[in-house]
Computed example of a mutant assay.
Amino acid sequence: MTSVTISLNSIEKVKQFVNLISKYDGDFDLTSGRYVIDAKSIMGIFSLDLSKPLKLDIYSDQTASVLMMHLKEFVV
């Protein structure tokens, strides 16, 4: 498992993030405080406090290595 801290502080960034991560197979979770949601769920993301950084958990190491190159604009 790979974890990275990201920021999704605008509606446009949330849309871009969900479109990007939906292209990959596997499980992805976003954590904010004690709340954990599916990172592919746009409704779930909007239920979180987006003013604070979020922790993204990527459960496939093969996917993580490729995905990390595309997540640069979101990484804090």
Rank of each mutant, 00 (worst) to 15 (best):
Q16V: 12
N9H: 14
I45H: 02
S41R: 00
A39Q: 02
N9Y: 13
L48C: 06
L20Y: 07
L8W: 00
F28S: 00
F28L: 04
D61R: 06
P53L: 01
F28Q: 02
K72I: 14
V4M: 10
V18F: 05
G33C: 03
F17V: 07
I37K: 04
I21E: 03
E12K: 10
N9W: 11
T63D: 09
L50Y: 04
F17A: 00
Y59R: 13
F46K: 07
V75D: 08
M68F: 15
T2F: 10
P53M: 01
A64I: 10
L56R: 04
N9V: 07
N19L: 12
D57W: 10
I42K: 04
L50Q: 05
D29Q: 03
F17N: 00
A39R: 03
D29I: 00
V75K: 08
K55M: 14
F28H: 02
I58P: 03
F74L: 10
K40Y: 12
A64P: 11
S32Q: 15
H70T: 14
H70V: 09
T31I: 13
Y24L: 02
S60I: 06
L30Y: 05
I37H: 07
L8N: 05
F17D: 01
V75A: 03
S22C: 13
I58N: 01
T31D: 05
V75Y: 01
K72C: 10
S41L: 07
K23G: 13
I58T: 01
S41N: 06
M1Y: 13
S65V: 14
L20C: 06
V66T: 11
M1L: 14
D38R: 04
V18M: 06
E12W: 02
L30M: 12
Q16M: 09
L56A: 08
Y59F: 08
F28N: 00
G26L: 02
V75F: 05
P53H: 04
M68S: 14
V14P: 09
P53N: 05
F74K: 05
M43Q: 14
S7T: 15
S60T: 06
T2P: 00
G33D: 04
F46I: 04
I11G: 03
S22P: 13
V18K: 08
K13Q: 09
L54Q: 12
M1K: 09
L48K: 11
V66H: 05
D61V: 05
F74C: 09
Q62E: 15
M69Y: 13
K40W: 09
D25T: 12
L54V: 09
V14G: 04
S32L: 13
S3M: 14
L56E: 06
K13Y: 09
Y35G: 05
Y24N: 03
K72N: 14
S10F: 08
D25H: 11
T5V: 13
M68I: 15
E12H: 11
